[in-house]
Simulated scan of single mutants.
Amino acid sequence: MSRMLYSVTMSLDGFIAGPGGDMSWLTPYLGPDPVVDGLIGEIGALLVGNRTFRGDDPHRGTDKEEKPFGGDWTGPQFILTHHIPDTPVPGVTFVGDLDGGVAAAKAAAGGKYVNILGADVARQCLAAGVLDEILVFVAPVMLGDGVRLFDHPGGTHVRLEHVDVARSPHATSVWFRVIG
């Protein structure tokens, strides 16, 4: 059975994108990472938020632009959006609701991870009780403002179980299992 994983790189002060969704801050922290390299082979499908899909790309201006994991991963992508475009995008399926997106991505993942990209989609999956694991790569930088890793006004207490921690030249990764 495929598991739902939210993997993301975050600044030390808790932001996954800068103001306005700026991802250029991430570029210096991209590079070889054994955790990422191992994860890529375990991903069967992506469930991506619309803002993430249409947003800024830390690989902008390179041959890796608009490719998941800089082109190191290929496979089915499911974009959660209320505005499905008229023109198809190769390798991409647009879905209008979370339940349908999760079901389609899990079916396509073939027992591997469904990797979630986008803070809002991850928050929705957590609220729906379908998020299984969280992998955060903490980059050695503070942004001061932007899109938070997890933002739920009024607060939500989420219990996590520690799975693993690793360090690379670019980030420290912390892996958790969602337990309630």
Rank of each mutant, 00 (worst) to 15 (best):
22 D>I: 06
71 G>T: 02
31 G>Q: 09
107 A>S: 11
151 D>H: 06
117 L>I: 09
105 A>Y: 02
98 L>V: 02
77 Q>R: 09
137 F>E: 14
58 P>F: 02
98 L>W: 04
165 V>Q: 15
150 F>S: 13
11 S>H: 00
94 F>Q: 03
84 I>V: 15
84 I>F: 10
85 P>D: 10
119 A>T: 08
133 E>L: 06
13 D>W: 01
171 A>R: 04
146 G>H: 10
121 V>M: 07
80 L>T: 01
126 L>S: 10
98 L>S: 09
133 E>K: 06
13 D>N: 07
17 A>M: 11
1 M>G: 15
100 G>F: 08
21 G>V: 00
42 E>G: 06
85 P>E: 10
110 G>T: 13
150 F>K: 03
43 I>Y: 12
44 G>P: 03
140 P>H: 07
37 D>M: 02
3 R>D: 07
49 G>Y: 00
114 V>I: 08
158 V>L: 14
103 A>Q: 06
105 A>W: 03
111 G>S: 13
3 R>H: 07
156 T>N: 13
21 G>L: 09
132 D>Y: 02
145 D>R: 09
108 A>R: 08
135 L>V: 05
153 P>D: 12
40 I>D: 03
66 E>V: 07
178 V>K: 14
15 F>V: 05
149 L>Y: 08
79 I>Q: 04
132 D>K: 04
1 M>W: 06
125 C>V: 08
62 T>I: 10
141 V>G: 08
112 K>F: 07
41 G>S: 12
169 P>T: 14
69 F>N: 02
76 P>Y: 08
